Amino acid sequence: MRTPRQILTEAHTIAVVGASRDPQKPAHWVPGMLQEQGWRIVPVNPHADTILGEHAYARLTDVAEHVDVVEVFRPADEAPEIVRMAAAVGAGAVWLQLGLVSREARQIAGEAGLDYVEDTCMGQERALHDLVHGCEQPPRCRVYHGNPATPDIAEVPTAPWS
């Protein structure tokens, strides 16, 4: 099983089940930050047409392109079915955001051969390892002061790549 860092390093496309249109919710700004850092984000939300400038799909099984990781921002009791759908679309990993834990989903993922992360924020993991995707030059890191929806944002250059 790959570590969270390995999953992020090897991923190109992240489907976000439960992506939000509300910029004040983590289900919006975490995938937005990942998008800014170079990952392809595919929002999954049956109540939205677009999120983060991307077409939003009603169900994970509606996504036509390959998905490397399924990031979950839905209640833990929905996780087992989401893991089943992730296996059906050929995803390599399922990642339950901070606060989400499901023994049944973990078991289903293991049986399906999927890497599985739970109760971990993908955005925090990305920041801890200073990961960016597909960029020759690291992008400028946005430092949010207070509410990420407010305009009080300072851009700070990231550390040089080693």
Rank of each mutant, 00 (worst) to 15 (best):
R103Q: 15
Q97F: 09
I7D: 10
H12E: 15
W95T: 00
G113S: 11
R59E: 15
Q107F: 00
I82P: 04
A105T: 06
D115H: 15
A88R: 05
Q107P: 00
T13K: 12
T13C: 14
E36Q: 14
I82C: 07
Q35R: 14
L52S: 03
G18D: 13
A105S: 09
P80V: 04
Y57C: 01
V89A: 06
G32S: 11
R84T: 12
G53H: 07
G38P: 08
G99C: 11
V63G: 06
E54Q: 15
D77P: 10
A56C: 03
H55G: 00
D77C: 09
E54P: 04
S102A: 12
A27Y: 06
W95Q: 02
T13D: 12
A76N: 11
A19E: 10
G90Y: 11
A91R: 01
V44P: 05
G18Y: 09
E118V: 00
A19P: 04
V83H: 09
N45R: 06
D62P: 05
L100W: 08
V83Y: 01
G99V: 01
A79V: 11
L98D: 13
L98V: 00
A88D: 14
V70L: 13
G53D: 05
S102M: 10
A58H: 09
M85R: 09
R74I: 03
V67R: 12
W29H: 14
I14S: 12
E54L: 03
Q107V: 02
Q24G: 14
H47T: 10
R103D: 15
S102N: 10
S20R: 02
L60D: 08
P23A: 06
A86D: 07
V42Y: 04
V101W: 04
H66D: 15
V69G: 05
C121E: 12
M33F: 02
P23K: 04
R21E: 14
V89S: 04
D77A: 14
R5V: 11
R84F: 02
R84D: 12
S102Q: 11
A19W: 10
G90V: 06
C121N: 05
A93V: 09
L52P: 02
W95F: 02
D68G: 07
V89C: 12
A86H: 07
I108K: 11
V94E: 13
M33P: 00
W95N: 02
E71S: 12
E71K: 00
A15M: 12
R74M: 10
G90P: 11
A105W: 12
L114I: 06
V67N: 13
P80W: 04
R106V: 02
Q6L: 07
G32A: 14
A27R: 02
Q24Y: 06
E71F: 02
T120N: 10
P26I: 13
W95C: 02
I108Q: 11
I108A: 07
L114S: 08
V63R: 04
G53K: 12
R59N: 08
Y57E: 03
V67M: 13
R103V: 14
P31K: 03
G90L: 13
H28W: 14
V83N: 10
E111I: 01
A87K: 09
V17Q: 03
T61G: 03
E71W: 01
E36V: 00
G32L: 05
L52K: 03
A11W: 12
A109T: 04
F73E: 05
I82N: 07
D119W: 11
E54D: 07
A91M: 07
R103N: 13
